[in-house]
Nucleic acid binder design. Structure first.
Length: 222
DNA sequence: CCAGACGTTGTT
DNA sequence: GTCTGG
DNA sequence: CCAGACGTTGTT
DNA sequence: GTCTGG
């Protein structure tokens, strides 16, 4: 699953791989937690990509209490097209969450955190969806959630779910607002290939969202 | 018809 | 908003 | 995801 | 134990 992640990418790399029209202003984050503000990429009706900041934890447009977003930090790919909280967003409001890696905790024996990133160190792209919630005072609150799928063979010993990670060749399809049919999207929901990822144990420092230093991703010595 | 839910995770 | 359950 | 709280009253 | 907050 995906309940914590990092983004440690130079603006040039981000703009290049995601085809952004401008260099984003972005700083390294080593321990992003739910409810926090995060940058995501979406595409407007003209096909221009933009980097926008949103809250992690999707608040459906119809929600009376925005706190529902605290629970909706992930959406299962198997049911995202049916669930009332997600099915409108998956048709018309898809986005990509750029990342460098994510954390997973084992629950066997002791709770051990692991860090997972691309084997070659390249950026990671989570498949996400977003929504816009109107507060009583009329202001708008945009929020997103990350899709999950079955774990691949690398992740399985740690956890049975992992985020849906997109290949660069799939970005266009995912962000295309004119594509709304589930059957054109479901083939993207495969576990990312194990041999393109790497994983190592890290310090329990990462457990607290208050810790946001490079030490969070350093390999732990047992 | 109206009321009430609307989600994921892990653990047993 | 929209569906399910009573 | 994990950490941390978990309550009410009245007063300024 | 369970919910809220980050």
């Amino acid at each position: 699953m995906c309940g914590r992640f990092t983004i440690i990418l130079p603006p040039e790399v981000l703009a290049e791989i995601f085809g952004l029209p401008e260099l984003p202003r972005i700083e390294a984050r080593y321990n992003i937690a739910p409810t926090q503000e995060v940058v995501v990429i979406r595409q407007n009706a003209e096909g221009v990509r933009q980097l926008v900041t949103m809250k992690w934890g999707l608040i459906p447009a119809w929600a009376k209490d925005p706190h529902i977003g605290n629970k909706l930090i992930n959406a299962r790919c198997e049911s995202v097209h049916e669930k009332p909280a997600f099915r409108q967003a998956i048709r018309t409001r898809r986005c990509i969450i750029p990342a460098s890696g994510f954390y997973d905790w084992t629950h066997t024996d002791k709770k051990i955190p692991f860090y997972v990133s691309m084997a070659d160190g390249s950026p990671m792209a989570f498949a996400g969806i977003w929504d816009s919630w109107k507060a009583p005072d009329g202001s708008r609150l945009e929020s997103f959630t990350i899709l999950t799928t079955n774990a691949n063979s690398l992740i399985a010993p740690i956890h049975d779910r992992m985020p849906v990670i997109l290949h660069p060749a799939e970005f266009d399809l995912w962000l295309d607002r004119d594509i709304t049919e589930p059957e054109k999207l479901t083939h993207l929901y495969h576990p990312y290939p194990s041999d393109l990822l790497r994983a190592w144990p890290v310090s329990s420092l990462v457990n607290s969202p208050r810790n946001e230093t490079p030490a969070c991703i350093e390999q732990a010595v047992s």
